[in-house]
Every structure is written in C-alpha cells, then in structure tokens.
C-alpha cells in the first residue's frame, strides 16, 4: 500500500514504548501492532486524534504517501 505509517519513528523520537502508548491512547497492543507494522486497512479519526495527542505530533508526521514503484517506472 502506498500509505506508510511512521508510528515507530515518532515513538522513537518521543522515546515512548508501545505499552506506554497503548495505555495513553486506550488501544490494545495488538491493534497498535497492526498499525505499526502497516497491516491496517483503515484508521479512525478518533484513533488518529488520540495518537497525535499522546505523541504531540501532526497526522502528517505519522502518515506518509509514497508512490508505487511500478507506477513510478511506467512514467
């Protein structure tokens, strides 16, 4: 998927563990892991708001759009 979740980068910047974040945003560890590993299909605005609040960042810091390699080579 061309949308990349940079949750681990932001967590490292804020020096926050997955357990701490899980407690702060009231999400299960498995759900956070799904988000961190990029397996998630969608993210709720409420979840995004909670994560941004806990990590003191913007949604753009967490999500990044990267074009597919195939599409880039076709051009």
């Amino acid at each position: 998927m061309p949308i990349i979740v940079n949750l681990d980068v932001m967590m490292a910047k804020r020096k926050m563990s997955l357990n701490d974040l899980s407690e702060k945003v009231d999400l299960t560890l498995s759900n956070l892991s799904i988000l961190k590993t990029g397996k998630a299909k969608a993210i709720r605005f409420t979840t995004l708001e909670a994560i941004c609040n806990a990590l003191d960042c913007q949604p753009g810091d967490l999500l990044e759009y990267k074009e597919n390699e195939k599409k880039t080579t076709n051009r």
């Binding site: 956070l32 397996k39 998630a40 299909k41 969608a42 993210i43 709720r44």
Partner: peptide, 8 residues
C-alpha cells in the same frame, strides 16, 4: 469482516 478487523 477482515477490513473491519484491520481498522484501528
């Protein structure tokens, strides 16, 4: 269902 399971 799968999509719903993978919605965080």
């Amino acid at each position: 269902q799968n999509e719903n399971d993978l919605t965080v």
